[in-house]
């Protein structure tokens, strides 16, 4: 109940914000009868109506994970975000080994297999991508290899 209502409310807010910003779209002199605003506004209206249905006729709650698992999921998200930032400046191998290791540990909390799968995946995928598929990946950051 509550989760559907909360999500419905979020969608409603987003839909209203979407409609509001759609009305701000600039029209150019090359106008057609519909213009660039109408369709986004239509989408926003349909979304808003559907979100009201969700708020007033919610489904039963799903089984949400407990607090520690939520923490783990949030941490995984942070790790993936930092991986996204690290991939370019720090090269492929080091960030990949760390990220893959952490994810592996989160799925099955045993340190040794996690470290091994992190290193194995990072080196293995690098060889696969660089030499078998010919992608232009950089192994290590510039300041390490000079």
């Amino acid at each position: 109940m509550a989760s559907d209502r909360i999500f419905g409310l979020v969608v409603l807010m987003a839909a209203l914000a979407f409609i509001a910003s759609a009305t701000q779209i600039q029209t150019s002199f090359l106008a057609d009868p519909v213009g660039p605003k109408t369709f986004p506004i239509m989408i926003g209206v349909v979304a808003a109506i559907s979100s009201l249905v969700m708020i007033f006729r919610p489904d039963p709650d799903p089984e949400w994970p407990d607090k520690p698992t939520f923490g783990a999921l949030f941490f995984a998200m942070l790790v993936l975000i930092s991986y996204a930032y690290a991939l370019k400046p720090l090269g492929f191998i080091i960030p990949t080994a760390i990220t893959a290791g952490i994810l592996s540990y989160q799925i099955s909390p045993r340190p040794k297999p996690a470290v091994l799968s992190g290193i194995g995946l990072s080196v293995g995928l690098f060889i696969l991508f660089k030499f078998a598929l010919g992608l232009g990946l950089i192994a290590f950051p510039k300041f390490l290899i000079g």
């Binding site: 893959a100 994810l103 592996s104 799925i107 995928l125």
Partner: peptide, 9 residues
Amino acid sequence: WVLLPGVTM
């Protein structure tokens, strides 16, 4: 624990 990190990478 090997497969999913691999898929992500």
